[in-house]
Design a protein around this nucleic acid. Structure first.
Length: 480
RNA sequence: GCUCCCAUCGUCUAGCCCGGUCUAGGACAUCGCCUUUUCACGGCGGUAACAGGGGUUCGAAUCCCCUUGGGAGUACCA
């Protein structure tokens, strides 16, 4: 059996990190099993669905590298179309078949009548169950007559009176008691089919073998089980992945701040890092590895390593994962990414050797790609550093003024754009031998004179990357 | 309210299915130390958890029940 999985977002907003995680698991499972990853657009809620969101979500998915094998833009004629709004006739046909078999019926109940039933059920402390007269087959003819007169009924599914058991890949055995749900609408009176129905018809017709989705659908599944049964369809495997929660332990949503993928994308997080972090929320690597890329995971991914409890989204760890991916990345790729950042004119103009040395030095300090331009500015280009207290202290040492004077003199003599490590070493030697300064006063003094800071990366790597004109300005600045 | 799901360090988790090897392992964060002639990077180490109560058993983080806590669902939303 070839695995077919799907990610089925509603285009009612940006791609959410929870959605991205679900998409990721589906993608990974497809790749791990040599299966097919299908993208289906669940836009049956005409009011909220927008074509632009569909495009935006697909863009985000692509950015994450979660490319689908089939979808609206990559249709397989056997299963197309992939937008539910374009499949209305398919749903109506199947709904009609259910009515013909008396597995569903026309319902003309008004909103008021329905509300009254719900209130009654609530008062009696049970779930609302449809008890309208149209449930009775005796009224079928009356319904037909009203339809003939042009009235529009909803189509309601006749929920079997029995309990259902689901063998979920992550939750294990789940039993839905009899009467958990009453008869439910599958086609609205305006002819629009409803999610639970579309979902099953599509999964059935698209031959989906594994449904990997959020736990918020766990209760829905009983309705879907009923429909599979009524349709005579094979029931796929289900894996209800636990939900992502925010710091207040509530389901992650917009009010938790940065929860849409495009936000991280615009802040230039690495897509691989995002997949890596998201993957770890509720799933664990068999050898407890926590830094990996998609290729590594595909080889070991399986549905039996999901955690059953919900996971808190923690930006701190995500940031760490991002920084680990930066450290792992080769310099050439890093340089390419950095040059796409704004305010990197200086960086872009430098020699390949300079860029490589610069990235090699700075990547251990950077958590994000956007940190590189910042670090270059602070560490390499800033020529009037702030005089901080620790810096003042170094400047007050007896030996510092002479170091400062010496550095001013030496940098004044340099005509090249940069100095070499050897030249720097020469200066250090001079200060050490001729001036008799060593240890902390030596290094801290030279550091202060050349960088205007009391701390930072190793001087022998940093200074050869710093333009001599900046060095000159700094010494002049400090001499004032 | 009702139904379903969940419960190991602050956080993500391993272990649970197939009880003993768990005085519970890893990672983030945090704290400390070491190294480096400075500063970092790094390395090493510390603090820190089986929600509570009953069973079952020679033995329970692991199996069962209850309580408590948390989450989700309860639509002619998805």
């Amino acid at each position: 059996m070839t695995v077919r999985v799907r990610f089925a977002p509603s285009p009612t907003g940006y791609l959410h990190i929870g959605g991205a995680r679900t998409a990721l698991y589906n993608y990974l499972y497809a790749k791990a099993t040599g299966g097919t990853f299908v993208l289906r657009i669940e836009d049956t809620d005409l009011e909220r669905s927008k074509a632009e969101y569909e495009k935006l979500q697909i863009d985000d998915l692509k950015w994450l590298g979660l490319l689908h094998d089939e979808g609206p833009d990559k249709p397989n004629p056997k299963y197309a179309p992939y937008r539910q709004s374009e499949r209305t006739e398919i749903y109506q046909k199947h709904a009609q078949e259910l009515v013909d078999k008396d597995l569903a019926y026309y319902d003309f109940c008004t909103e008021e009548e329905l509300d009254a039933m719900k209130e009654k059920a609530a008062a009696e402390g049970r779930d609302p169950v449809y008890e309208g007269k149209w449930k009775d087959p005796a009224f079928h003819q009356e319904a037909l007559d009203r339809i003939a007169k042009g009235e529009k009924p909803a189509i309601r599914f006749r929920a079997p009176k029995k309990s259902y058991t689901l063998n979920d890949k992550v939750k294990g055995s789940v039993t839905y008691p009899e009467n958990m749900v009453g008869d439910f609408v599958i086609v609205r009176s305006n002819g629009q089919p409803v999610y639970n129905f579309c979902c099953v018809v599509d999964d059935y017709l698209m031959e989906i073998t594994h449904v990997i989705r959020g736990e918020d659908h766990l209760n829905n599944t009983v309705r879907q089980l009923m429909i599979y049964e009524a349709l005579g369809a094979k029931i796929p495997e289900f894996a209800h992945v636990s939900l992502l929660i925010g710091h207040d332990r509530q389901k992650l949503s917009k009010r938790h701040g940065a929860t849409s993928v495009n936000l991280y994308r615009s802040e230039h997080y690495l897509p691989e890092a995002m997949c890596n972090y998201l993957c770890l929320l509720g799933w664990s690597h068999p050898t407890e590895k926590d830094i990996f890329d998609k290729q590594d995971i595909v080889e070991v991914f399986s549905l039996d390593r999901f955690s059953a409890s919900s996971a808190m989204y923690d930006l701190e760890k995500f940031k760490w994962v991002n920084s680990e991916h930066i450290k792992k990345m080769d310099n050439a790729s890093l340089i390419l990414l950095i040059e796409q950042e704004p305010e990197t004119e200086f960086f872009r103009k430098q020699s390949p050797e300079w860029k490589n040395a610069c990235v090699e030095l700075l990547k251990r300090y950077a958590q994000f790609i956007t940190d590189f331009p910042k670090l270059v500015n602070e560490l390499i280009l800033n020529d009037d550093p702030e005089i901080t207290d620790p810096l003042k202290e170094i400047l007050s040492w007896d030996t510092t003024p002479q170091i400062l004077a010496f550095i001013a003199e030496e940098t004044g003599k340099v005509t090249s754009e940069f100095i070499s490590e050897a030249e720097l070493n020469g200066w250090m030697e001079h200060v050490k031998k001729i001036m008799g300064v060593k240890g902390k006063p030596l290094f801290q003094g030279v550091r202060a004179a050349l960088t205007g800071h009391d701390h930072g990366p190793d001087l022998k790597f940093l200074i050869p990357l710093t333009p001599v004109r900046v060095l000159k300005n700094r010494v002049a600045h400090l001499n004032k």
